[in-house]
Write a protein that binds this DNA or RNA. Structure first.
Lengths: 197, 197
DNA sequence: GTCTATAGGCAGATAGAC
DNA sequence: GTCTATCTGCCTATAGAC
């Protein structure tokens, strides 16, 4: 049901989002400009303003698209017949994929700049993390039922600890660029949730 | 041996660093300007340039002072007759103190913006995390000897997991401003290192 | 040490032609 | 949809007086 586009993969708005997303993930929302995006695409900044009224609207669209794609990936994992530890590993794998592209999680980056963001972007970032927490909590509760996962405190607290651990590992591993750094942290977080069995 | 200063606590350079540090911790290095600092202190931006040649030099000084103070705090904890879990709790308490001021760890914030930082700042940030890792590794090794701590993999990996978990928890808890969020994550990380006993 | 004044550049954004 | 041209404002930084 997607409209056919014989002449190019992705229209201009999509390509703007692609470039802007990479720049935000690598440099932050306050670390890139319309001129950066325009130059890379070989168009003018005025053309960008045609597709996105301002930087705030572009930012909103970035968060919305990122959250939507991430939610899709989580649904796909949830649908597979895996035990909880395997699902958590898959979840951590999503982060490793982003890291291999030498990027930070878009919303992790925006969390750092939270105080400087337009309201609509803030709300999108909060929704992203709420959704991730809810998904992880459900998986952890599955693990408790299966007997494959154990933790002190509530499932939502354990979900947040796991999520925070992954975001923090991306943050700290990126300067060194060492994927093994991130994967070791993923294993450590998982071990903390499973070694009690 | 500190020079006496009857007329004021902290000279101008110190007060510039105080304001700039808070702004970086709350808004990021790319999210504040010389004008912000000058206005808050009631001086001109030209006066700032007298004390710090440019924003890069100010940034360097910020990282150096922060790392020095943090190292002092770690030495104080190391000197106390505590078991490893208690030292880790104290370490986590340092992060809670920063968070209560509604700030991010300075170097955690700078890690997000790493790709946009001047070289000298990058090196300072890397040294900060290397030092933290080394300190945590030593505490974890103490814990293994005591039998109070256990983990899979190497001590340096466990140290990184713990550090990343705290930085990530600060990052994600700050939008909501909920200190309990951070403290729950601290407990969760500690439990992951001690529940195996 | 701090000021006023200002340079020079880049930011986000708009008008209007094509 | 994309362009050129331009606006306004903010940024870092400097010159030179006091």
């Amino acid at each position: 049901m997607t409209a056919p586009r014989s002449h190019r993969v992705g229209d201009t708005a999509d390509r703007i989002l692609d470039v802007a997303q990479r720049l935000v993930q690598q440099r932050g929302f306050n670390g890139f400009s319309y001129a950066d995006v325009a130059e890379e695409l070989g168009i003018s900044t005025a053309a960008l303003h045609y597709h996105f009224a301002g930087k705030a609207e572009l930012g909103e669209a970035l968060v919305a698209r990122y959250a939507s794609r991430f939610a899709q990936a989580l649904e796909a994992i949830a649908a597979e017949p895996l035990d909880a530890p395997a699902k958590l590993e898959r979840y951590a794998g999503l982060y490793a994929d982003v890291f291999r592209d030498q990027r930070m999680c878009l919303c992790g980056m925006l969390a750092a700049e939270f105080q400087t963001l337009p309201d609509a972007m803030r709300e999108g970032v909060l929704r992203f993390f709420d959704h991730s927490e809810a998904w992880l909590r459900a998986v952890l509760e599955q693990g408790v039922r299966e007997g494959t996962v154990a933790f002190d405190g509530t499932a939502i607290e354990a979900a947040r600890t796991f999520l925070a651990g992954l975001e923090g590992a991306m943050l700290l591993a990126r300067p060194s660029g060492d994927i093994e750094w991130l994967e070791a942290a993923s294993r450590g977080l998982l071990t903390g949730l499973t070694s009690v069995s």
